[in-house]
Amino acid sequence: MPLTLDQAAQLMNQDLEQFLLRCPLSISSAGKQKGEVRFYLYGLGDTAMGRHQGMPVKEGRLRLSTTALSTTAKAIQCIHIPVSQFEQLKPESISKVTHYDTAKFLVTTQLTGCTFAIRPGKGGGLEFLHIQPNGDFDGKKVQQAVGKEFQVSFGRGSQNDGSTYDDNSRVTVMGVRVNNLWKVYAQYQDGDGNILGVECIYQEPSSVAYV
């Protein structure tokens, strides 16, 4: 039986990795908003394949959006990383997250060619960037260029390998803070929203010092 919305929300709070393995998730953009934003988790009314204990299972597709499109939607406070175009990048395009940001989860809109980048911030905290390719720079070129400046440059490539995703995949990126340290996961999906796999693309070292 597919999880109910209550069960899915509970699993998300208890174990984000297992939630992403089981529940096909898409995330809508919150525009240019940075920092903590209230999102709502709700069902889309159709199903796709997830995985439970290593076996394929049919689950209801879920969405996180800033608009509650269902009366049963669950409110979840998240740090939102907005999208910036590659050719218009500025220092202020980077989102810096510190311990002053109290939300447990971190989200960005689904990747369909974009690159998601992470690096330690100067003076503490973490810096995040979601870059949309445009002009002469396609997704693969952006992923390679950003990799020269960021510790993690997760973007379009030739395969689904924890640092890239192929042309037939799209990716939901979501992070969770546990004991004040971030883990960021990528949920690979095919064109129908079926889960192909989940990878941890960044794990904050326990020696990090926040300021």
Rank of each mutant, 00 (worst) to 15 (best):
V97Y: 04
K141G: 08
K34H: 09
Q85L: 08
Q10W: 10
Q132C: 09
P120Q: 14
F154V: 00
Q187W: 05
L41D: 06
K90G: 12
S169Q: 00
A48C: 08
K141V: 13
G197S: 00
V173N: 00
S26W: 06
R38C: 15
I201R: 04
G125T: 05
Q159F: 08
V211Y: 12
I76H: 02
C200R: 01
K104C: 03
A145R: 15
I94L: 13
G191L: 10
E87D: 10
Y42F: 14
G191C: 14
C200S: 08
T164L: 05
S28C: 11
G162W: 02
R38A: 14
S29Y: 07
G175R: 02
I94C: 11
H130E: 04
A9G: 04
P91T: 06
Q143F: 02
T98R: 01
I195K: 06
D138G: 06
G50N: 03
R51D: 09
Q10V: 12
S169D: 02
A68L: 05
T67E: 09
Y188D: 01
G157W: 02
G31S: 13
D46G: 10
A75N: 03
N194H: 15
K104Q: 11
E127Y: 07
I94M: 09
V184P: 02
Q189Y: 01
T72M: 12
L25Y: 03
Q18A: 10
R22H: 07
H52W: 10
G124P: 09
E149G: 12
L3C: 08
E149W: 13
D6N: 11
V57A: 10
G162F: 01
I94H: 09
L21W: 07
P2L: 02
E199M: 10
E36V: 01
M1L: 13
K34M: 14
G35F: 05
D166G: 12
D161W: 01
Q159R: 15
Q85F: 12
K34P: 11
G139C: 05
Q159L: 11
A30G: 00
V142L: 02
K58Q: 12
G35K: 07
A186Y: 02
P24H: 03
P82D: 01
L126P: 01
Q151P: 15
A145L: 15
T109C: 14
L16N: 00
L3S: 06
E87G: 11
V146Q: 14
D15G: 06
S28W: 14
S65T: 04
D161A: 01
Q151E: 13
L111G: 06
T164P: 00
S153Y: 06
L44T: 09
